[in-house]
């Protein structure tokens, strides 16, 4: 005596999470395929079809020319300090803002630089930090310096503009991670005798660290792809000749798209290496919920 107990295909698919709703991801998948996967693969293959030489000729050229491979160091030397500086600024400010009742106003003010865009910030800094700008004139009026400090068209100009444009993003991310920590944990620490510094060291910082690792990665990737401020505020021929400038020159000055693709691939690999290293270190940390109980 046997009855047909087979389950319809539709129901079996639904049990595996595939139903009509799944179709909603189709536009996003198409978008990714068209605008990310395809260009990426296209660039990858293009980089192995150099104008002259063997398959790896572009890569050989990049790593044998110090004018090219040097850009990796230059970019890291900008992106890593900028990321660390924005985090170092964002953490204490987020700690203060977290306790405020009128968070929204301050958060809005801090976030404005995001809406301005890199170019406007660069233009502003050109006026503000220039030899005749307020900054130098104020310092000279106060007698702190006798001749203008050179903050433009060198490393510091780019560094400052990256910190300004990168800060809001880093700050918002840090604040949201910090707000995710149950305030009762800090209160519990206090009733157990921990002062503010000990509460930060033993409770808040360890719980914040995994979030900071993610924030670090995202901020770093943003800073690493710097282009406008390196050109406008830096010395694009020298100390701030970052890797994106090398790619730009290969593409639009030498018209060697294959070489430009190779530079872009190297850029992606360097970013990936740093991000993987940070995420691997994060894997060693506690990453569970930042709440104090089941409730």
């Amino acid at each position: 005596m046997s009855t047909d107990v087979s389950i319809p295909l539709k129901q079996r698919l639904a049990a595996r999470g595939l139903d009509g709703l799944t179709l909603l991801v189709v536009p996003a998948v198409l978008f990714l395929l068209a605008l990310f996967i395809y260009p990426f693969l296209y660039g990858l293959f293009l980089s192995f079809e150099p104008k002259q030489g063997g398959v790896f000729a572009n890569y050989q050229r990049f790593f044998s020319d110090s004018f090219l491979y040097g850009t990796i160091g230059t970019t890291l030397w900008l992106a890593l300090p900028v990321t660390i500086a924005t985090l170092a600024l964002a953490i204490p400010i987020a700690f203060r803002v977290r306790l405020m009742r009128n968070q929204r106003l301050l958060t809005t003010i801090l976030v404005i630089p995001i809406t301005l865009g890199t170019v406007l910030v660069a233009e502003g800094l050109l006026n503000y930090l220039g030899p005749q700008g307020w900054f130098n004139r104020t310092l000279m009026t106060l007698g702190l310096i006798s001749s203008p400090v050179k903050l433009l068209h060198n490393y510091w100009g780019v560094m400052l503009s990256l910190v300004i444009t990168g800060f809001p993003f880093t700050f918002l991310l840090t604040l949201s991670y910090l707000s995710g920590i149950d305030p009762a944990l800090e209160q519990a620490g206090a009733t157990l005798g921990a002062g503010p510094w000990e509460r930060f060291k033993h409770i808040l910082f360890p719980l914040l660290l995994p979030g900071l690792a993610i924030t670090f990665c995202l901020s770093f990737v943003q800073a690493f792809s710097v282009f406008p401020s390196a050109v406008l505020l830096g010395a694009p021929a020298g100390p701030t000749r970052v890797i994106s400038i090398a790619a730009y020159q290969a593409a639009f000055e030498e018209y060697d798209y294959s070489m430009a693709s190779a530079v872009a691939m190297i850029m992606a690999l360097v970013q990936l290496a740093i991000v993987v290293a940070v995420l691997a270190a994060r894997g060693l940390l506690y990453r569970g919920p930042a709440g104090g109980g089941k409730g």
């Binding site: 209160q187 519990a188 569970g288 930042a290």
Partner: peptide, 15 residues
């Protein structure tokens, strides 16, 4: 103050 406190949601340090 050095008082011991038990919180409603326990507030145990999860890490």
């Amino acid at each position: 103050r050095g008082f011991g406190m038990v919180f409603q949601n326990y507030a145990l340090f999860p890490h």
